[in-house]
């Protein structure tokens, strides 16, 4: 859980034990403004944090980092039937954009796109070091990748939403709730 409080008004923030606190705070407050819940966890505690966050049944795609793992309660090789039956989908996020509260979800051959899309709750796992300040930085990163590997990604901000039925509703075709586990 988060313990460090911001103690400065300095725009550039300050760094405490390798963390850019101002950047993190900005991301957290923007993401929360869309109703996204955030949980911080050290690499060793990530599996437990995910287990706490999910509503079963849960499906997921393997996380791309060596030091963090999904808990056993997440089905990591889901079938279309699992996709239909699950309540929660867990995927990694490649990047997050502080001033928008957005996470960037790259499409993988393991199926991160359907796993993050079809269920009511999407749990995104993000490394704090993958936080960038703004959209320009995000596109610099993605531009290189797109030209090299011709990959695809979704810049996701909050849950899916619609105003087409006469009022704002969260949870349209995509998830109605999003939670971000920040690995720090």
């Amino acid at each position: 859980m988060r313990t460090i409080q911001t103690q400065t008004k300095d725009d550039e923030g300050f760094t405490m034990s390798g963390k850019d606190v101002a950047l993190y705070d900005q991301f957290a407050s923007e993401a929360r403004s869309y109703g996204v819940e955030l949980t911080e966890a050290s690499p060793g505690a990530v599996a437990d944090a995910i287990a706490d966050a999910i509503e079963p049944p849960a499906i997921g795609t393997p996380l791309p980092w060596d030091d963090v793992e999904l808990p056993d309660c997440v089905e990591t090789n889901p079938t279309p039937a699992d996709v239909e039956g699950a309540v929660t989908g867990v995927t990694g996020a490649s990047l997050a954009i502080a001033d928008y509260g957005s996470v960037v979800l790259e499409m993988t051959a393991a199926g991160s796109e359907p796993v993050s899309l079809f269920n009511d709750l999407h749990v995104a796992v993000l490394r704090e070091s993958d936080l960038v300040p703004d959209m320009a930085a995000a596109f610099e990163w993605f531009g290189e990748r797109a030209r090299e590997s011709r990959g695809s990604a979704i810049v996701a901000t909050g849950p899916s939403a619609t105003a087409d039925m006469g009022a704002l509703v969260q949870g349209a075709h995509g998830p109605e709730a999003v939670e971000v586990i920040v690995v720090s």
């Binding site: 279309p80 996709v83 928008y100 957005s102 499409m107 993988t108 051959a109 393991a110 199926g111 991160s112 796109e113 359907p114 993605f142 797109a146 011709r150 990959g151 695809s152 990604a153 979704i154 810049v155 996701a156 901000t157 909050g158 849950p159 899916s160 939403a161 995509g174």
Partner: peptide, 18 residues
């Protein structure tokens, strides 16, 4: 400020069909 999803797709996409 931003909509829920900005899809940046480089089709044909790598995602397996469901």
């Amino acid at each position: 400020d931003i909509t829920s999803y900005v899809s940046l797709l480089t089709p044909p996409v790598d995602s397996p069909t469901v």
